[in-house]
Design a protein around this nucleic acid. Structure first.
Lengths: 249, 249
DNA sequence: CGTGTTCTTGAAGCCGTTCAATGAAAGTGG
DNA sequence: CCACTTTCATTGAACGGCTTCAAGAACACG
């Protein structure tokens, strides 16, 4: 089975768009990035690339790969949500990030995965043997450069995450998280004030370095001030400017 | 004026070493990395590279570049310590990382610097016009790959930083910081239990997301338990295993 | 409809911050 | 070289925010 049409559509997203669109398509936290790289692909290259992939579906809580395991496949998420996390020596879990449809997963060249990944809900992804994938890239300098630029941008976003998580209050963290999610989902479902939150509160807490109760309290607090409206599996952002202010505090 | 001998020595560090040594030479936090890339350079390439550089010295608190400014030069730190930071909308300062001798600075391809950099003490660095530098790299696929791998590794380290800063206690953060600094300085001054801390307490606090007083308290607490010994401009690590345990908590 | 899971909300306690004062060290000018 | 100034580090006490523990409410699933 080769890569689904959906996967390929995801890959070539931005092909006709300006570079700035490609920049937006990088994942905020990790080695995840939608490979806008593919916008540089020639048609014959694209079909060669296409033939490398294979589709998979993962039910909720199914693991895509485990931290420390041999990194022999990379994934392109096509639907659902993937949770990226590490288990600390003290047993706690830290969520590194979330992979949305269009995001790439497992690119790092290290031979082992640096974190674990599992499905937060029913998820489909396109799987590539890592070896073939990286060889394909390394053989094409223009793609290498794109990959480097993409990684570099992911690194900048990781800095943002450090800044956010380090020393701001719970409300600021949650507000920033919501605004961040809004931008990320915009690429998938278009820009909207309704932000999907398929992950649980615990996941958000582990991502922001907050306890589940603090996340819940921050959300209800924002809701009480009519800045957001909590809906099933998501929130509606009612006052973006004020949310931005709170997030920057 | 061309690149000093010291700068070139810094660049070729690891040339004779195994790949694992190169891996160690990546900066933990940022787009900083000692360009172990150069170990792949042929001699003629190396001299061509050498001629691109120019030496500079910066007194304490002198700024190398400001966040948002046009990123038209990259630096290779040859001595001293460079502080990398961002000023948040609320006026606070967040230290993104520290650049040690051998670290590279400003590689990102974005046209503007993503953070500011200034000298934490008397610092010398080797300056390259960014355009020439990146063109030089982009023209050499094997260097591109090294650069990508290096950036990818920096990203993983950034994840570590997120994990550290997010939800561990003050003592754990400080202990982890000390152990981290020890490894980084090992490349410069050799492995030792005496760790230089040329930066101020405030810098450490802004880096770890702690107040200056908490940093001070954590250090004195560790000292009281005979895990470290505080010396001028540094600490001596007396009990590495137990420090490791504390850092992991 | 019942059971298990997730989310919310409350109260107590802890840890880090803030504010403030003291002490130490480094830089400056006579 | 010393006295003065300035900066930095340490320490104390009070406050506040987040966590923990725990119970109840909402929700999803069979």
């Amino acid at each position: 089975m080769i890569a689904s049409r959906a996967a390929i559509d995801g890959l070539v997203r931005g092909r006709s768009g300006p570079p700035s669109v490609c920049a937006l398509s990088d994942c905020a936290e990790c080695q995840i990035r939608s490979v806008s790289i593919c916008s540089d692909l020639e048609n014959d290259e694209l079909s060669a690339f296409e033939s490398l992939g294979q589709c998979c579906t993962f039910p909720t809580r199914a693991t895509l790969f485990m931290e420390g395991a041999n990194a022999d496949v990379v994934y392109n998420v096509t639907s659902g949500l993937v949770r990226l996390f590490r288990i600390l020596p003290n047993g706690r879990r830290r969520v590194i990030g979330f992979a949305l449809p269009g995001d790439f997963l497992g690119l790092p060249l290290s031979e082992q995965y640096g974190f674990s990944a599992d499905a937060a809900e029913l998820t489909t992804a396109c799987r590539f043997p890592r070896r073939l994938f990286t060889d394909f890239l390394y053989a094409r300098p223009h793609l290498m450069r794109r990959l480097y630029e993409s990684t570099s941008r992911a690194l900048e976003h990781s800095h943002d995450q450090v800044v956010l998580v380090a020393n701001s209050g719970a409300k600021a963290k949650v507000a920033a998280f919501l605004l961040q999610q809004r931008l990320r989902w915009a690429r998938v479902r278009g820009m909207s004030v309704t932000v999907p939150l398929p992950m649980g509160r615990q996941d958000i807490g582990d991502f922001l370095g907050l306890s589940i109760s603090t996340v819940s309290r921050a959300l209800t607090s924002l809701a009480r001030e009519s800045l957001i409206l909590i809906v099933p599996k998501g929130v509606r952002l009612l006052d973006l400017p004020r949310l931005q202010l709170i997030a920057e505090d």
